[in-house]
Design a protein around this nucleic acid. Structure first.
Length: 704
DNA sequence: GCAAGGTC
């Protein structure tokens, strides 16, 4: 007989097999699932990797159609589980016949416990098969070996806690999404989604926009002195900003004719600027966002580079390299990359002391390179992401930058002025991580009592500015701070807001739809737009895991709250329908029709559900344009340079945003389509036709 | 055709 070891993913399965088998194992495939076998403890060890969850909840078939009259019933209807990976289930069932022990070796966290429990539940095992759990928090020899020497029990309460979240999320998500969509007639491609994480995230964007709209800029005045020693520099009146012009004028009158500023005190000192912390997912996405890449695209690239053996696992909260990380070995590998020179320089340092961040977890190391790549091989954004991760890794190992900071206090006709400046003396890590701009601000060395000549004294008027809009990067940081979503889902949630046309732009602004959804929910189902729902759910899950309350109680209470929210929504149904539709009338306006010059271009839907753009002066003007069926479409201010037709921006998930001319006959368009046709042809040529359909059919049965 | 969480 044998022991089956179940891991959460193939990569982990391979590592576990390699460690337990001391490198000597066989790899075979069952239903295309890799299976690792080796002699182990006088029996056979069999390791398989899952693909995360292999079961998911959904409602019974009778609720398949979205019917507003079903919603009250849906609240209390328990969802049913179905498999999302039948081929993996079949493999597990086949293997179950060969074993007497099964060890769950999924990730050591709440979802991991549930993923393991799901695998057990689909295996149809004989009751005498022993079930054990290996708990390890890193895929290293000592951790894995230790875990398998000290096996524990599967924690059913922990799995139940994760399951409670699934049930609650589906109930609120499905019921409120269906209500919003059916009550307003927004069905099909432009349905209105609602969820525990997405709706509070959207509310962050909507609320920020309101802050900006309601912002009342306050005028302020400053008094500045342009000084000169060696070079020009300037000092500000020590009072800082004046909110009353008279006060600034008073100071200005005193100092306006002064010719010298007397140094009261002046100091300068060299201070170290520590290298940045290692990358976790959030900071990685924030940096990629600054480079102009969407979170979804950056993550898609990082996942690909991970699968190609170039980057480590990209989903991690950890910002501290584990002691076991073979830093020197990685640097040696990197010397063969296009950043080889830089890697060599770091390697040549006497000591390698990496920086550390505040968050330390033990599941995965911070994101770092694991293989060498060249610009010629990766190209484009793939290379930019790889380079970003490599440079971050190098920077975390590089020396401090040394910054000289200077401060001075002056007396000008009895008024105090301040000056500050800084200069980079040694670039240190900045050499390896040139993504920030470090601009020196000049301030000379000065002695106490020294008189500095004044070039000019001037007043400056300014206005306070509203808070800035969120970028994808800063939103993800805020979500992390509020406990919304996880390292694996935040980028998807942000993308979802774009896909639903709730937000637009790289400086995120809510659309009319996004704003009206948040306002409606705030008025009628406030809970779902607050991050508190997530923190309460976390508390409940902890209690379930500790065995203090049972899953049923949490689910029932949640159902009751959902029922009362739904009741409120139904009471205002007519009003919601009216308000949402009035607001959305403006949502699809795409600018003036270039053909008739009178009408507005609108996104409309054909009877078959295909969307297209048409002039709203129809039937007087019959101008229409085909548009992409997927992706968020926003109008572009400038018309096409080639044909003066309308240009739209299309943002599709995991892709580069595109600006395309809608006129089919436009030359620019023709070239683009020819290029695309060529590209498509090259794909079908280079791939064996048998392979792709096979892969598709393997996925299909999962959906049922 | 709904969510969010894993992973590809």
């Amino acid at each position: 007989m044998a022991t089956l070891i179940i891991c959460e993913k193939n990569n982990a399965a391979q590592r576990v097999a390699s460690i337990l088998a001391k490198g000597k194992y066989s790899k075979t495939f069952m239903n295309r699932v890799p299976v690792f076998r080796f002699p182990w403890n006088n029996t056979e060890g069999i390791v398989v990797g899952l693909r995360g969850h292999i079961l998911n909840f959904d409602y019974p078939k009778e609720f398949k159609n979205w019917n507003i009259d079903d919603l009250e019933r849906l609240v209390a209807t328990p969802p049913v589980k179905y498999t999302t990976a039948t081929w993996i289930m079949n493999t597990l069932q086949d293997l179950a016949k060969q074993i007497d022990t099964v060890i769950v070796a999924t990730d050591f966290d709440r979802e991991g416990e549930l993923i393991g429990a799901e695998a057990i539940s689909v295996m149809n095992m004989k009751p005498d098969i022993k079930i054990l759990r290996a708990r390890f928090s890193a895929l290293t020899g000592p951790e894995i070996n230790g875990a398998f020497e000290n096996l524990i029990e599967l924690d059913h309460n922990l799995a139940k806690a994760a399951e409670a979240r699934q049930i609650v999320d589906l109930a609120w998500g499905a019921v409120l999404t269906r209500f919003m969509s059916t009550s307003t007639g927004k069905l099909g491609a432009d349905f209105l989604s609602v969820g525990r994480v997405q709706s509070p995230s959207l509310a962050i964007i909507v609320n920020r926009e309101k802050e900006i709209e309601n912002f009342d800029p306050q005028p302020f005045w400053e008094v500045l002195a342009d000084l000169e020693k060696e070079k020009h520099f300037f000092a500000k009146h020590a009072h800082g900003l004046f909110w009353e012009k008279e006060e600034a004028d008073k100071v200005f009158e005193v100092v306006k004719d002064a010719k010298v500023a007397k140094v009261i005190e002046s100091e300068s000192k060299a201070v170290p600027d520590r290298p940045p912390a290692p990358f976790n997912t959030t900071v990685f996405l924030a940096e990629a966002s600054k480079m102009g890449l969407s979170a979804s695209r950056a993550m898609a690239i990082a996942e690909r580079l991970y699968n190609d053996g170039l980057l480590s696992y990209p989903r991690t909260d950890n910002t501290v390299y584990p002691r076991t990380l073979p830093i020197r070995h990685i640097l040696e590998k990197l010397t063969k990359s296009d950043l080889g020179k830089e890697a060599g320089e770091i390697l040549a340092q006497e000591k390698l002391r990496p920086s550390r961040g505040k968050m330390q977890t033990t599941d995965h190391p911070p994101i770092h390179p694991v293989g060498a790549a060249t610009k010629a091989k990766l190209k484009g954004d793939d290379w930019r992401i790889y380079e970003l991760v490599v440079r971050r890794f190098l920077a975390t190992l590089a020396p401090d930058a040394i910054i000289e900071r200077g401060n001075a206090l002056f007396d000008i006709n009895g008024e105090q002025f301040q000056a500050a400046g800084h200069e980079t003396l040694e670039k240190g890590w900045q050499v390896y991580y040139p993504y920030f701009k470090f601009k020196d601000i000049f301030i000379p060395k000065m002695e106490k009592g020294e008189e500095i000549s004044i070039l000019k004294v001037r007043g400056r008027e300014g206005k306070t500015e509203p808070p800035r809009r969120y970028s994808q990067g800063t939103l993800i940081r805020e979500m992390e701070k509020l406990g919304l979503g996880t390292k694996s889902t935040r980028h998807e949630i942000v993308q979802k807001l774009y896909d639903r046309s709730y937000v637009q732009g790289s400086q995120m602004r809510p659309t009319i739809a996004g704003t009206v959804i948040v306002e409606t929910l705030e008025d009628n189902a406030e809970m779902i737009v607050k991050p508190d729902m997530t923190s309460q759910l976390e508390k409940d899950m902890t209690q379930i895991a500790e065995g203090k309350i049972d899953q049923k109680k949490v689910v029932t209470e949640s159902q009751e709250m959902l029922a009362s929210s739904l009741k409120v929504l139904f009471e205002h149904k007519e009003n919601i329908h009216k308000e949402v539709n009035e607001a959305l009338k403006n949502q699809n306006q795409m600018g003036q029709c270039p053909k008739c010059g009178k009408g507005n271009l609108l996104i409309r839907k054909s009877k078959r559900g295909k969307r297209f753009m048409a002039c709203d002066a129809y039937p007087d003007c019959e101008n229409t344009y085909p548009i992409p069926q997927y992706g968020a479409i926003t109008p572009h201010k400038e018309p096409c340079k080639v044909c003066e037709g309308p240009i739209v921006k299309v943002v599709m998930s995991r892709r580069k945003p595109q600006e395309i001319c809608l006129d089919i006959d436009c030359k620019a368009n023709k070239e683009r389509r020819e290029k695309y046709a060529k590209y498509k042809a090259s794909l079908t040529e280079s791939k064996t036709p048998a392979k792709k359909p096979a892969k598709k059919s393997a996925k299909k049965p999962a959906k049922k």
